[in-house]
Amino acid sequence: MFASLLVVAIIGAIAWAGSAVGLGVLFGVVLPYVAVAAFFVGVIWRMVYWAKSPVPFAIPTTGGQERSLDFIKQAKWDCPTTTFGVVRRMFLEVVFFRSLFRNTCADVREFDEVNNGPRTIYFSSKWLWVFSLLFHYCFLLVFIRHFRFFMDPVCPVITWIETIDGIMQVGAPRFFWTGGLLLCALLFLLARRAFNQRLRYISLPNDYFPLFLLIGIVGTGICLRYFDKTDIAQVKVFIMGLVHFAPVSADGINSLFFVHLTLVSVLLLYFPFSKLMHMAGIFFSPTRNLPCNTREVRHVNPWNPPKQFYTYAEYEDAFRDAMADAGLPLEKQPEKAAE
């Protein structure tokens, strides 16, 4: 965990120091262009690779009774057998995280009066579902809001989202609730890994790194808006120059902005090669995109093309003389031996 935090801190420190000594072009122009190109190339490559990968087994996730006999009720939402049912299940999974909503936790009670000893108990756990949903939708809204820096004039939809997001009119500039809720959701996901002993045991640096990276992005964004403020008009001119492939001078822009931009660029570079690709991978997962009809339709393994079988009679015809010399039993003796 601390190694991931240190890496993110070093990246931010390098961007801060580099922009302060006049390397704004590197961190504000070159790195974003490389990151965006790597992001799109990497995502497309992963998606094409997944699309071309054969599915040797029918392994759709089942959450209820599969369709079988007429008098047995089928769980159509969790075991769909039709294309429409699969689309419906995918929609609920992508939009509402339905499988995560059904999440359960297991715990061991040290002493149970009934069993007079330790006992494993299972209980519903909705907190992960709540904060995961909060994180993804807040991140989406923040991402959409940032499009005001990439277009002129600004789309009315983005203006409407900003109005709803800051409807409470707290502070000046007004407080955007999605930014604060996004930071809270990330801190919960981090605390869940840091303080849950069993989850911490199986966590790897690539589980902590994107969390610290996202916390750094959100934290620097909040600081830029409410605390160490920068000239938003100058930032928009700078970003519009990047959009039109005509970069302008970065002189006068706060160094914290380049830290924020560098962390975003690192996230784009890291995204296609990390677990974050589950955003696209869910659509290619056979556990989700296959119907639960294995009792009705035989799944043919694409890795098993028609094969040319070599019978024992053909094998003996090819090696009969050698087998006879070795004293192996034969169904048919060599012609010379028979004479």
Results as ranks from 00 to 15, higher is better:
37 A>I: 15
9 A>D: 04
239 I>M: 10
107 D>H: 05
120 T>G: 01
63 G>D: 05
180 G>D: 03
56 P>N: 03
29 V>T: 09
297 V>T: 05
195 F>G: 02
287 T>G: 14
219 G>R: 00
62 T>F: 10
88 R>T: 11
281 G>I: 02
336 K>Y: 14
244 H>Y: 12
292 C>G: 02
336 K>A: 11
311 T>P: 07
222 I>Y: 06
161 I>A: 04
243 V>F: 02
173 P>R: 10
95 V>G: 04
316 E>W: 01
11 I>R: 07
241 G>L: 01
313 A>I: 07
169 Q>E: 08
314 E>F: 05
337 A>Q: 13
130 V>W: 14
76 K>F: 10
22 G>Y: 07
39 F>D: 04
277 M>C: 03
185 A>S: 10
92 L>Y: 14
134 L>E: 04
162 E>W: 03
276 L>K: 02
42 G>F: 01
7 V>M: 04
76 K>H: 12
61 T>S: 11
32 P>M: 06
294 T>W: 10
271 F>M: 05
252 G>F: 02
290 L>P: 00
188 F>H: 09
32 P>Y: 01
89 R>E: 12
179 G>K: 04
279 M>H: 13
167 I>A: 09
174 R>M: 07
221 G>R: 02
266 V>N: 10
315 Y>G: 06
296 E>Y: 12
336 K>I: 09
174 R>L: 04
272 P>N: 00
6 L>W: 12
98 R>I: 12
263 L>E: 04
109 R>V: 05
182 L>T: 06
19 S>E: 13
86 V>I: 05
3 A>H: 10
328 L>M: 09
255 S>D: 15
289 N>C: 06
293 N>L: 01
231 D>W: 11
319 F>Q: 10
104 T>L: 13
245 F>G: 12
208 Y>T: 00
298 R>Y: 08
91 F>W: 12
223 C>E: 10
261 L>N: 13
319 F>W: 03
334 P>R: 05
329 P>I: 08
307 K>H: 15
52 K>H: 08
305 P>A: 05
182 L>Y: 01
220 T>G: 03
181 L>P: 00
226 Y>Q: 09
50 W>R: 11
137 Y>T: 14
208 Y>M: 06
68 S>E: 11
306 P>N: 10
18 G>Y: 05
243 V>N: 03
15 A>Y: 07
156 P>Y: 08
277 M>V: 00
219 G>C: 00
52 K>C: 09
36 V>W: 01
338 A>E: 13
207 D>P: 02
298 R>Q: 11
42 G>Y: 00
33 Y>H: 07
47 M>D: 04
137 Y>M: 13
316 E>G: 04
282 I>C: 06
236 K>I: 06
99 S>R: 14
338 A>C: 03
137 Y>H: 15
84 F>H: 05
56 P>S: 06
310 Y>Q: 10
24 G>W: 04
4 S>D: 02
113 E>G: 06
275 K>Y: 05
152 D>C: 08
77 W>L: 08
101 F>A: 09
61 T>F: 13
164 I>L: 15
328 L>F: 08
283 F>E: 07
173 P>S: 06
17 A>L: 15
282 I>W: 08
254 N>A: 15
72 I>V: 12
